[in-house]
Simulated scan of single mutants.
Amino acid sequence: MYKPILAIPMGDAAGIGPEITVKALADNAVQEIARMVVVGDRMVLQKAMEFSNVDLSINCIDDPRDGNYTSGVVNLIDLDNIEMDKLKMGAVQAMTGKAAYEYIEVATRLCLDKKADVLTTTAINKESLKAAKVPFIGHTEIVGALTRTQNPLTMFQVHNLRVFFLSRHVSLRQACELVTKNNLLAFIDQSVSALKILGVKNPHIAVAGLNPHSGEHGLFGREEVDAVMPAVAAARQRGVNVDGPIGADSVFHFALKGKYDAVLSLYHDQGHIATKMVDFEKTISITIGMPILRTSVDHGTALDIAGKGIASPVSLIEAIRLGAEYAPFFNQDH
């Protein structure tokens, strides 16, 4: 059975990225489903292994196809861009922000050049990126620019629950203003296409209501009447298997139980809260709509515990698992 190659930029050197990377690669179950190539700094990873009590050997390579994919080995593309005497664990630093961007840049290029099948990202720090004058606020924006993708689509998955987001990092007021028939209809089409790329045939999706009880037919809020219902009706006329609006207090539960293949969340926190309450550590971010597939942990750099050897690798292990699971469908489609 073909095991996909996953390119893993190790994240911010001052955070928990290097630690969870070595811990995840030490997991034998992970080694059985995928071949991992880390893009990072050798000395940082060596230090992470020391304070995490992880015993792995580092194999420096230039091309993922030349890796040694046996248990106990970390295949590393070493950018050697961290000055260890200046590295301060748990601190915001321009040096680590710049280096983190460079790891993503190289790992993304590996995927674009078909030397790796999936980009699986760890955590980066927005403040460190800013200190380094990197003109992006996060992974999605960075990878979108590197792949020349205008509007990458974010999907969260936790267990059997998949969630798409109509809007992401905008104010709640702005998010409500973005709930229009045209925006939602385009979003429904985009989400259905993404599910098909991931191997879901004839996706059955649901649109969450924006207001409590989906506005009770306009009694408290007209977004459902004026935008959501018309968009759903138009999509159904096109043959899309979509229901909604369905109250946000129940629709995520129904999807988790298998009634829907995905839920369309109408603003950031609506879907984030739902997924993270199911299982915080196993909530994974998947970016679709680009020429490459990206899976990612959904947590930050955790600077407060960086360097202590206590960070959990569960989220990265799950991101690797989903990357390996979806890679055959994505690559077949592309």
Results as ranks from 00 to 15, higher is better:
V240G: 10
N241H: 14
S265M: 06
D189K: 12
L219G: 00
H213D: 01
L256A: 15
D261G: 11
K259Q: 15
K196P: 02
F252C: 04
I273N: 05
E223K: 09
Q190N: 14
S250H: 07
K196L: 03
H204G: 00
I246P: 14
E223R: 05
K259D: 13
D261C: 08
V192G: 07
S265K: 04
S265C: 01
R222T: 02
R222F: 01
P230F: 09
K201H: 08
D243Q: 14
H204L: 02
S193R: 13
Q237W: 00
P245I: 06
P230Q: 08
E223A: 02
V240H: 04
L219V: 12
R238V: 00
S214D: 02
D249S: 04
I197V: 15
L256P: 01
L266R: 08
A233G: 04
A194V: 03
D226F: 00
H204T: 07
V228Y: 08
V200Y: 11
E216G: 07
N211F: 12
F187A: 12
I273Y: 02
L185R: 11
A262S: 11
S250L: 13
S214N: 03
S214P: 00
Q190D: 14
M229T: 11
G215R: 11
A255W: 09
G215D: 03
P245M: 09
L266H: 08
V251N: 05
K196S: 10
H217T: 00
D261S: 10
R236V: 12
S193G: 08
N211E: 12
H213I: 02
L266T: 10
F254H: 14
N241E: 13
L184C: 05
D249K: 02
N202L: 07
Y260F: 15
D243P: 01
Q190R: 14
I273D: 00
D269R: 12
S191P: 08
H272W: 10
I273W: 03
F254S: 13
H204F: 05
S214I: 01
I205D: 10
Y267N: 06
E224V: 02
L264I: 15
Q270T: 08
F187N: 13
V240K: 08
I246H: 09
K196W: 02
G244L: 12
A206L: 08
L266P: 09
Y267D: 03
